[in-house]
Design a protein around this nucleic acid. Structure first.
Lengths: 127, 127
DNA sequence: CCAGCTATGTGCACGTTACCCCTAGCGATC
DNA sequence: GATCGCTAGGGGTAACGTGCACATAGCTGG
């Protein structure tokens, strides 16, 4: 999938899919839309489907064909109990990742504030 | 480098090195220690040095040998102006990433809260 | 001379990622 | 009934990042 502007955690697509499917079952193209708020710029359906099939192979998700009156049939995905447990685990890990990001950004902003307050940087090189 | 418990953004090591070098110039082993608060469990010096040399190749960092009275000589790294600009850019991107994580965790916790309040999940599959 | 420590690096296998392309079903139009 | 265009699902692949083990070099002390 497309890596937004910021650089997100590795494999962030997987927990996002699990969360979205926990909120509401869906088919691929719909997920492509619902992924937007999480930083995925709708492109690369290939990556999405590959990820879904892998999740299914691991038993975190299951799917069934749903006939459609408009256009081709769709494959509807829903989360399994195992998938929910995986989601809980990943959420814990992501909470830790947020903590680390907070540490980084805190120290970064602290330094920017020092510069603004007139404290000189420790001998930057002529780059 | 070692991927902590949480799964951090890709290439997170780079901005961390830039931040640490902006705070204070240092040599490799010292950075290995100072990286701990950012989730890198001191191992894999190889990854660290490789990253430092790449940063130097891109002009974000410069280095010089410093003789030592204890043990072998060390290579002291310092950040360049170009490196500082890179740091600012990466910090913006990481701030966005934190926002995305907040979105994810917010929706996740919201869902957990609903479950606790007795609202049933939308037909989870028998996994 | 050899062991052990600090400090700096290399090699390699593996998984992920990003990017580009392909198939199939259906509806509408000509 | 061809053909076009849309939706939906999927593959191939080269480059990259990561993790782990291993290699080198200098200094210190027994």
């Amino acid at each position: 999938m497309d890596p937004i502007l910021p650089t997100l955690p590795k494999n962030f697509l997987r927990p996002c899919l699990l969360l979205l499917l926990r909120e509401q079952q869906a088919h691929g193209y719909e997920l492509l839309e619902r992924l937007r708020p999480f930083g995925f710029e709708g492109s690369d359906p290939g990556g999405l489907y590959r990820s879904l099939r892998k999740l299914e192979g691991e038993g975190l998700v299951r799917s069934a064909w749903e006939p459609s009156s408009f256009g081709p049939a769709r494959r509807i995905y829903e989360i399994t109990r195992v998938g929910m447990e995986e989601l809980h685990d990943r959420a814990k890990g992501l909470a830790e990742a947020r903590g680390t990001l907070d540490t980084f950004l805190g120290r970064y902003e602290e330094f920017v504030a020092l510069r603004r307050a007139g404290v000189p940087a420790p001998e930057p090189a002529r780059g």
